[in-house]
Amino acid sequence: MVRIEGLAKSYGSTPALRGVSFEVPRGQVVGFLGPNGAGKSTTMKILAGYLAPTSGAAYVGGIDVAADRVATRRMLGYLPENNPLYEEMMVLEFLEFVSEVRRLPKEGRSGRIKNAVERCGLTTVMGKDIGQLSKGFRQRVGLAQAILHDPDLLLLDEPTSGLDPNQIAEIRELIKQLGKEKTVILSTHILPEVQSTCGRVLIINDGKLVADDAPERLAHGEGGTVSVVLASRLGSSLEPAQVQSVLERVPGVTSVQAAQGEGAGTLGFTLRYGTEDPRRELFEAAVRSELALLEVRRQHVSLEETFRRLTAGEAAPRASDPKPQPTA
């Protein structure tokens, strides 16, 4: 449904996208994640046929967006960032206008409008000026406009920004419903949104794609960390290098990092593990080496942590994170 090849975009001399490539098959709901200014909106604007890319190409339904913007725009519905709407128009007027410029057949128009209005819960505000609506209703008008022509592809740029928790839940539910029949690309910097609605996450940072996976995999596939605090069972002092080598040999542990202990005679370590939970083996190893486990605390890598790590600026991976970055 969507294919992007080496997409780059500069505003003047400021690069916003530095060669992004990905593909989205029909029917997928994709979360497009990244900090503000990472290039999410730029990618959306290019896909929507509003901005022209500096280099690279974007295809919607197999058609190059730059070659035939009108054809690609017909296939997609777009909710731009900040949801700009004609404030002085009534909701009904506005939707009629959209149905006209989208060239919906005259007979089908009122049916399509009715359908979109019902799905987005706008029935009660049809005769109101858009400028008078609350933010939640405005957002629904933006969504109604995007789904009016029943497009195969929906591009939603931060659809829940600025909404209260109830409204966010409603919009998410609506997006979930839409995702059952359509391809959806949803940009956001709110992580739970992705976890609750998307089957796949693209993380973009500084104009580059840094991760592309299922949210569960990004969150848990990498395993997590176990923090331990150890003391000698015999009361003697511990040799940190020796203890570290013991820990490194524990099956399942991928790396060991020294951490804070709890005072004299104790040592702290942070162990990273892959898919396998190493706590049982850890216990056995500790007993064999005459070590007392004062504390064992396991933490899953959360999507949030992955996100932070991947988008923490230009800096090298954190000291506690010697693992190479995942799929770029």
Binding site: G49, A71, P80, V101
Partner: peptide, 14 residues
Amino acid sequence: KSGTLELLLSMPLR
């Protein structure tokens, strides 16, 4: 200024 140009220019219009 209001951003609606983006909306208008992403409609299937030349």
